[in-house]
Design a protein around this nucleic acid. Sequence first.
DNA 1: CCTAGTTACGTACACCGTACGTAGTGCGCT
DNA 2: AGCGCACTACGTACGGTGTACGTAACTAGG
Lengths: 238, 238
Amino acid sequence: MAGKAAEPQVIWARPERTGRGPRPAFTRADIAAAAVRIADTSGLDAVSMRHVAAELGCGTMSLYNYVPRKEDLYELMIDAVGAEHEIREPSGDWRADMIRNAEETRGIMHRHTWVPRLMSGVYGFSPNTLRYLEHCLACLEPLDAAYGVKMELVALINGVVTTYTANEIATAERTRAMPWSEEEENAVRIAYLGGQVATGAYPHLAAAFMEDSGPIDLEAVFRRALERVLDAFDPDPG
Amino acid sequence: MAGKAAEPQVIWARPERTGRGPRPAFTRADIAAAAVRIADTSGLDAVSMRHVAAELGCGTMSLYNYVPRKEDLYELMIDAVGAEHEIREPSGDWRADMIRNAEETRGIMHRHTWVPRLMSGVYGFSPNTLRYLEHCLACLEPLDAAYGVKMELVALINGVVTTYTANEIATAERTRAMPWSEEEENAVRIAYLGGQVATGAYPHLAAAFMEDSGPIDLEAVFRRALERVLDAFDPDPG
DNA sequence: CCTAGTTACGTACACCGTACGTAGTGCGCT
DNA sequence: AGCGCACTACGTACGGTGTACGTAACTAGG
C-alpha cells in the first residue's frame, strides 16, 4: 500500500546485485574478508563500520550500500569463516566424520577467536552454514535415525564445540591480556578461590580441588565431551 | 617496587569495602539489582554506565568507584541472577536433580533473556556461581565417578542449557522485533531457504525439510538433549 | 590532629552506529 | 535514443558510548 515494500531482514534473502545503477566496487566476499582481517589482527572490537570501510578504501557510509546494519556485517563474517570447512567425501563412519567436523570447527574458532562471541547473535542459515549442515547430514547417512534426530545431533555437537572452544579462548585471552605477570594474577585468583573454599561453605568443591592435580589438558576435555555426546546418539555403542 | 601495586583483575578478588573514606552509598548488590532491572525492562544494550548510575541516583563517574570496568558490571549481573537458584536438599536421584537444576537455569534465562549473551564473557567464579556449582556436586554425590568427571558433567550440562536456551530466545526475539508481520518475514525466509534447497545443492537438507512436519516443541527438544547428555554419564542406563 | 586513601562527580575526549541529504552513474523501459 | 529511476558514493551531523582526569568533601588509622 503506502510506503516502501517490506525489505527482508536477513541479508541472505537480499540479492547482492540488482542490475540498476553503477557497478558496485566490492563484493560481499571482499567486505567479509576485510572485516575478518581486522578482527583477526586487531580483535572484534576493532571491527567498526569506519575501520572496515577504511580497509576497503571507501567512505564509511558507502558500506551501508552493501551492509544495511552492522549485524549483517557479522553475518558476512561468520559465513566467510564457514568457507574454511573442508568438505570431503563421508567415510562411512559417521562417528569419525563428526569428530573430524567438530575438530575442524574448533580449529576455525581457534584461528578466528572472535567467532564464538558472534555465534549467538547470528541467523545461522548463511550459504556456507547451509553447506556445512548439508555435509554433516551426508556424514550421518549411515546413522539409522530420523532427520529430526540428526538435526538435533548436529545442533548439540555444534553447541558443545562452541561453548567449549569459547571457554578455551576466554581463559587463554585472560592470561594473555594482563598488565602484570600471569603468576601474579593466578596467585590472586588462587588466593581468592582458596579463601572462598577455606570458609568451609563449599565442601564438595574443596574435595574437587583436592583431587585435581596438575594442569588440565583442555583438548582432551573437549574430546571426551564430544565422545560422550556421540555416545548418546550411538545405537551400537562400544 | 615502583608504582602502585597490582590490583586483581577479577572483581570478586577485590574487597567490597576497605574501611577508609566515607561510607559507600551503595552495595554491589544494589548496583547489580539496578543493572538487572534495566536489562530486564529495556534490554542489555540499555545497560550503560550512565543509565545504571541514573537508576541508582548518582553521578556516572561515581559508579567507577564500585565497578572498575563495565565488564565487571556484567559480572555482578550474572552473579545477581545466580541468586535465583533455589538450592534444595539433593533427593538422592542425581539424574532428576540435575534435570531440575537445568530446567531452573533455563527458567532463569527465560526470565532474564540477556543472560546467555553475557555467559561467554564472564569469569565464572562469582559467589553465587560457586554456590550453584557446589550444589550440583552435592546432587552428584550418588554418582560413582571422580570429581573431574562430575565437573565435566556440570560444564557440559551448563553448556547445553546455555546454547539451547540462547537459541530459543534468539528465535523468539527475532519474530518479536519485526516492523512487518511475522507471516511476512517468515514468508521471505521460507522463500529464501526454499530457493536455496530447490537448487538441488542440498539434497539431505531438502529431505530433512520434507520430513519435518508442523512446528517443533522447543522445550521437548531441550529436554531430549538433556536426557541424552545425562545418558552419556549414566553407568546404569535405562 | 593530621593525613592518606576513599567517595563523589563534572568535564572532556575519542569513538561508535547510522539518519539524512546531495551528487553522479548506468540499466531498463518506452 | 533517450528519459527516468534505482542505485552507488560519501560528507556531515547527532546522540550515544566507555572512561581518563581533576577537584572537592569526607573519614578512619597512625
